[in-house]
Design a protein around this nucleic acid. Structure first.
Lengths: 207, 207
DNA sequence: ACCTGAACACCGTTCAAGT
DNA sequence: ACCTGAACACCGTTCAAGT
């Protein structure tokens, strides 16, 4: 019984923290507010997380896990089609970013120092990156994408997805946040642009 | 005399704030520490900035001005060559991001709410975006880039630059931070990849 | 094992008082 | 006009004490 209660408190803290990060942002995020909203005293979180940073790291870890599952789902849904896998994984990423703007900012906005982060977070981030890398490597191996180091293509793909999510969440494309159809259209357009850069072309007219 | 003193205090606060954001990050940033490091009491900053957010916005505004000047400089240095302008502006962006990781995170990491920001910041951000847009539009007009909406190409180019800066500052490419030659090489590689996606190709083998 | 509540050092912000 | 320092409400963290 005590184990179930402990787990529930920990999970509740995590859920409240995620909601608070998304709704108020990192600056407004406070451990004491999380505790209050979770219905425990301000000292209770220290039974489950070593400090404020550790709780935020746990929220980010969940985020990376979700991105990993985006890739895994896309792989299963479109077997044999690297392009569709990549498009679907990217769309999954963007939808997550729209639903969880604070978590995305937490993961990539510099609020976390990965050089001193807990290994759970580091592992989750590496898994997400490896999953995306797998999608790009598959496309190269299938002869669909340019014959480049898949790592470079991974950087390009990930940069594009993340850049778009920033533009949607805080920038000039914010209108798409409220309009699901417009959001899907925008995702499609950017994916087209990305694909144009990834796919092989027949003639070279570089500088 | 009083005017000069006032300006100096304001400028010193701004400089100290920039340094603190870059070295300690947004979470550790505190108005009281800035005041102490600037040699004034903790109440003094309120004579120059309405609150903590206003000081951070001023730091971000300076950052956007720098990005704008990156584009302006690139335009002047490589007249008539849209590709070189874009490459140079991108490299300028990345170098700034490496030198000022905290400021870049402040500008794009979600710590600022642009929907309620002061107009100086909004204007500076819009100017930077417009300057980049001008570079892309010039390339399209010159017939070098794909015949797409320059806005979409601007999103793509900016996303790539920003994604790379994130990977360098907090991710798997951090080694390039310490090695200027490796940094320039990396910038070149990513720029190649971006150019590949921007430049016209002769044959279309899209799905 | 988990939680509470007092305690301490810190922070943002305000404001009367000084020059 | 600009700055100081007391004041207040808040926060992260620790820890003795309770169940």
């Amino acid at each position: 019984v005590s184990e179930a209660t402990a787990t529930n408190t920990r999970d509740r803290l995590l859920a409240v923290a995620t909601e608070l990060v998304d709704r108020e942002g990192l600056t407004q995020f406070s451990l004491r507010t999380v505790a209050k909203r979770a219905g425990v005293s301000h000292g209770a979180p220290y039974r489950h997380f070593s400090d404020r940073t550790a709780l935020l790291e746990a929220v980010a870890t969940q985020g990376f896990s979700h991105l990993t599952s985006c890739c895994a789902l896309a792989s299963r849904t479109h077997p044999g089609s690297p392009e569709r896998q990549l498009r679907e994984a990217g769309a999954c990423y963007i939808r997550f970013a729209v639903r969880h703007p604070g978590v995305i900012h937490l993961m990539f906005g510099g609020g976390l120092d990965y050089s001193v982060a807990g290994e759970a977070l580091v592992r989750a981030a590496e898994s997400a990156f490896a999953a995306l890398h797998g999608l790009l490597a598959a496309g190269v191996e299938a002869g669909r994408y340019r014959d480049e180091d898949p790592l470079h293509l991974t950087y390009a793909a990930w940069s594009m997805a993340h850049g778009l999510s920033l533009l949607i969440n805080g920038g000039p494309l914010a209108a798409a946040r409220e309009d699901p159809a417009a959001l899907e259209r925008l995702i499609g357009t950017v994916a087209d642009s990305l694909m144009y850069g990834l796919l092989k072309r027949n003639t070279d007219d570089d500088h």
